[in-house]
Design a protein around this nucleic acid. Structure first.
Length: 791
RNA sequence: GCCAGAGUGGUGGAAUGGCAGACGCGACGGACUCAAAAUCCGUUGAAGGCAACUUCGUGUGGGUUCAAGUCCCACCUCUGGCACCA
């Protein structure tokens, strides 16, 4: 009988669906295993090969853990709010809710076709009111604890599309949709005080089982630096301004100050600045460069700036007059937007000083082989760390400064002026300010609108829905308006794994007992691009919920591994936006899902980037064909034959270890090696095939499931991974290498466990390797190697 | 510039300090076939030799070791992340 994979795969998939084979059971006595995969944003273009490259190994791992007898929670959901769907809906003139529904249906269908073993009873979508009710709930909690507030800030605005864009939607300073240069526009926006959790997150990162590069990326993103704030007085006015420095000890080497060009203190004293026209001109110059270009150019750009004539300040420790410059290498968004410049000990300051001819004053010199401070009053003779402490102590005592920790991470700008997102459960009242909705009034659902196009001034389309916007203030009863911005796409994804644990709960985001049972995610798989933003946000929300006692785990993800990119033949990332992606379903026209799965597993390391090629697909197809044809050489015997005993035990031992280590490519090669042995002997017993099919199952679940059921009348999903017999891992006769002076000369067969003396005798008797040689030393590792050192 | 990871045949890639190149792809030769596809068998790191064999070989240069792709030092290249963050 031919192997009709299309028929078999759909048959097996239908059974999985009907029997709900992969359901996770709450409170089951077995060991739990929570395998989380980053959920996709469903798009009209469907799943692409880049996703599949990541999903298949995650699925293989989930299936393997089921075979270990664990109660596996392997869920799927959809991160369906956001611009891609909304833009598609605008273009096709359909409602985003309809588009979302279609996309989700399509994605689910494709996932089934690939044989992904999700628990379909736990599907969540961030766009369901039942789900975003709890996203709104978490926001209200943040608001209640003072961690959500509204403030003015610059946002990215595309003048052509007339929309506010997220940073991700305008990378390189160009609008993703139309390519237009993005402008910076000031708006009143919501912020979440994520920096309040910076320290807790840094501690969490230390504890989690992430790779060093993941930890580094996260720490880098948070960007902690320790130093001090120090007050500098203006000479021409009774006004102080603060600077942040990590090197307060170098204050004796300050020869100028630099303010960010936008620093408001400049405008406050513009009368005193005789060259204020130059300031304005400089501001214009740098304004034409977008934030993004500015960032890109930063590293190699030559320093620019303007000296403020008529305005200077006083070094609080030396009382010397210090000139003030403005320059774009100091940014308004970090620290205080002002620095003290110490050209002798900072490369950037030095570069600037040389270009503008400012004095350079050394603070540290090498004295007797030690770097110590000189010309610096009370810190003379001290090393850097002692000097830092001494200066901080001094400024704190004098009341002119204090110790300060700064973070690169900014507060989380938490809103979009778009329709397709979670509405804020907030009402703005002219008497009462921001009034939160009552929990019992959640969810606040999105109004059904015909026209969801954003308005010309960048306001949210919800502004136009007057019957929804205009409400009475819940506190004072007078006319008030709802918040019309919506939450960013990152909101729904910042807690979604928790909802999988209890997806239908109407009284809590999830039941505490269930949360305790499933605990932290055991393995979180996904792309490295989400290690910073998404995972930082998720860790933040989880810590916040933990502090409120709403979730039991401080560390949400025990372990994280990142999938390498899938590249096209030019080495470029395969992505839908680049148009070089591949639809996995077209591959399924020619090859079976098992073949595709096996090929992806065989391609290489999960964490490494791989170039897509279907060249290897034929090998996997041949292998599966051989698996099918095992039926023709099957012996009706449940025993393991002597011939195959060692091979089978080695197979079990090796593949178990390899599955544990996510090394799926070597599992495939072990299976191939074994089947080669089988075809050499031209028979396989039923006992042998049983183990073989189970080991194959995570990678090629359809064919293994079908054959298993057909041959043994059992379901492969009900059995356990085979155990190996550790006494049967080696044959009684083994082949070992004989080296002379560390160089391989012969391979000879020996009885297992042979002694050094017997082996030496054998070598002397059977070879001429030692004829006429003087033996200096013998290195013998039992059953492994014999190395003879001769003169 | 800083941080992390990686450099192995024509190719994807294997190797708890112990036979480098497993397994697959491709290529070449053969069987089957009128022929082709599919399938099966064999060869396949380089150089030398009729051969048994010999020499070289894991980015480069040193080192440790009986033994190094693997450990140590220095360097080169590539990939990813961060980057005028004070």
């Amino acid at each position: 009988m031919e192997y009709d994979y299309k028929k078999i795969e759909s048959e097996v998939q239908a059974r999985w669906e009907k029997e709900k084979t992969f359901r996770a059971i709450d409170f089951d006595k077995r060991k739990k295993y929570f395998a989380l995969m980053e959920f996709p944003g469903p798009t009209a273009k469907g799943v692409h090969m880049g996703n599949v490259r990541s999903y298949i190994p995650a699925d293989i791992n989930a299936r393997y853990h089921r075979l270990l007898g664990e109660n596996v929670l392997y869920p799927i959901g959809y991160d369906a709010f956001g611009l891609p769907t909304e833009n598609f809906a605008l273009k096709e003139k359909i409602h985003p809710a309809i588009a979302t529904e279609n996309n989700i249906k399509n994605f689910s269908h494709q996932f089934s076709r690939l044989g992904l073993s999700f628990d379909w009873d736990r599907v969540v979508s961030t766009t369901d009111a039942d789900y975003y009710k709890w996203t709104q709930f978490i926001f209200l909690k943040l608001f209640e604890k003072g961690l959500a507030y509204k403030d003015y800030a610059f946002v990215n605005y595309c003048p052509n599309c007339q929309v506010v864009l997220s940073n991700e939607d305008c990378q390189g300073g160009k609008c993703d949709r139309c390519g237009q240069d993005v402008e910076q526009k000031q708006r009143n926006v919501w912020f979440l005080k994520i920096t309040e959790y910076a320290e807790k997150m840094l501690k969490l990162i230390d504890e989690a089982d992430y790779s060093e590069s993941v930890k580094m990326a996260q720490r880098n993103w948070i960007g902690k630096s320790e130093g001090a704030l120090i007050d500098f007085k203006l000479k021409q006015a009774d006004e102080k301004f603060k600077i942040f420095t990590t090197r307060p000890d170098t204050i004796f080497g300050v020869t100028f100050m630099v303010l960010a060009p936008e620093n408001p203190i400049i405008d406050k004293y513009k009368d005193k600045i005789s060259n204020f026209d130059e300031v304005l001109k400089y501001r214009e110059e740098i304004k034409s460069i977008t934030m993004f270009e500015r960032r890109e150019m930063q590293a190699n750009k030559e320093k620019t700036g303007v000296k403020l004539n008529g305005l200077s300040c006083v070094n609080p420790l030396t009382n010397e007059e210090v000139p003030i410059f403005i320059a774009d290498y100091v940014v308004m968004g970090y620290g205080t937007g002002a620095i003290m410049a110490v050209p002798a000990h900072d490369d950037r300051d030095k570069e600037f000083a040389i270009k503008f001819g400012v004095e350079i004053k050394e603070v540290y010199k090498e004295v007797d082989g030690k770097e110590v401070a000189v010309n610096s009053d009370f810190i003379n003779g001290l090393a850097i760390n002692e000097a830092k402490e001494a200066v901080i102590k001094f400024v704190e005592e004098k009341g002119i400064g204090q110790r300060k920790i700064n973070y690169k991470m900014q507060e989380w700008a938490f809103n979009r002026q778009r329709y397709w997102g979670e509405p804020f459960p907030i009402i703005e009242c002219s008497n009462c300010g921001f009034v939160p909705l009552d929990l019992k009034d959640l969810p606040l659902t999105l109004p059904d609108m015909e026209n969801i196009k954003p308005s010309a001034d960048g306001d949210s389309p919800l502004c136009k829905c007057h019957e929804w916007v205009n409400v009475k203030c819940p506190k004072c009863g007078c006319d008030a308006k709802r918040e019309t911005d919506t939450m960013p796409q990152w909101a729904g994804s910042s807690w979604y794994w928790l909802r999988y644990i209890d997806p239908k709960n109407d009284n809590a985001l999830a039941d505490m007992d269930k949360l305790k049972y499933w605990g932290a995610v055991d393995l979180y798989t996904g792309g490295s691009e989400h290690v910073t933003r998404h995972m930082i946000y998720a860790q933040f929300w989880n810590l916040f919920l933990y502090d409120l006692g709403l979730v039991p785990e401080r560390v949400p993800f025990k372990k994280r591994i990142c999938c390498g990119l899938l590249l096209d033949s030019d080495g470029k990332k395969m992505s839908k936006s680049k148009g070089n992606s591949l639809d996995p379903l077209t591959v399924l026209e020619t090859y079976s899902a098992d073949t595709l799965r096996m090929h992806l597993a065989f391609m290489g390391d999960y964490e490494k980037a791989v170039v897509w090629s279907d060249a290897g697909m034929a090998g996997c197809e041949r292998f599966l064909d051989k698996v099918w044809k095992l039926q023709e050489i099957l012996q009706d015997d449940m025993q393991i034959s002597n011939n195959h005993e060692v091979d089978l035990n080695v197979l079990i031992k090796n593949t178990r270890f390899m599955y544990d280590n996510f090394s799926h490519n070597t599992v495939v090669s072990e299976l191939m090696k074994f089947i080669n042995v089988i075809y050499k002997d031209n028979y396989i017993t039923k006992g042998e095939l049983k183990s073989f099919l189970i080991i194959l199952n995570p990678i090629a679940p359809h064919i293994s499931s079908y054959l298993f059921n057909k041959i043994y009348g059992e379901k492969i999903e009900d059995v356990l991974f085979p155990e190996y017999d550790s006494t049967k891992l080696e044959r009684s006769v083994i082949n070992i290498p004989i080296q002379i002076n560390g160089k391989l000369k012969r391979n000879i067969d020996i009885d297992k466990g042979i002694s050094e003396e017997d082996l030496m005798a054998k070598v002397k008797a059977e070879t001429n390797l030692l004829d006429g040689k003087e033996i200096k030393k013998v290195i013998f590792v039992k059953d492994k190697i014999l190395n003879i050192i001769v003169a």
